[in-house]
């Protein structure tokens, strides 16, 4: 499982990065990058005002 960002939905607002409890999200040129520290706590998914993040995978 991993958190993925739907770039078509993303508004580059940083709500995900500011919410992440382990600072695993880096806004690279305003695009969120989910780093390997991600614990899949899903808080960023909750925080995203436009549901651009989701948990994907096996």
């Amino acid at each position: 499982m991993s958190v993925e960002v739907d770039m078509e939905k993303c508004m580059h607002c940083g709500a995900c990065a500011g919410t992440c409890p382990v600072n695993a999200i880096f806004l690279n040129d305003l695009l969120p990058e989910i780093g390997s520290d991600c614990t899949e706590c899903e808080l960023c998914i909750k925080a995203c005002p436009v549901s651009a993040l989701s948990l994907r995978g096996e």
């Binding site: 709500a15 500011g18 919410t19 992440c20 409890p21 600072n23 909750k46 925080a47 005002p49």
Partner: peptide
């Protein structure tokens, strides 16, 4: 520390 979810507002 990180912010508790109750202290974060999601805005649009």
């Amino acid at each position: 520390d990180t912010i508790k979810p109750k202290n974060i507002m999601s805005c649009f």
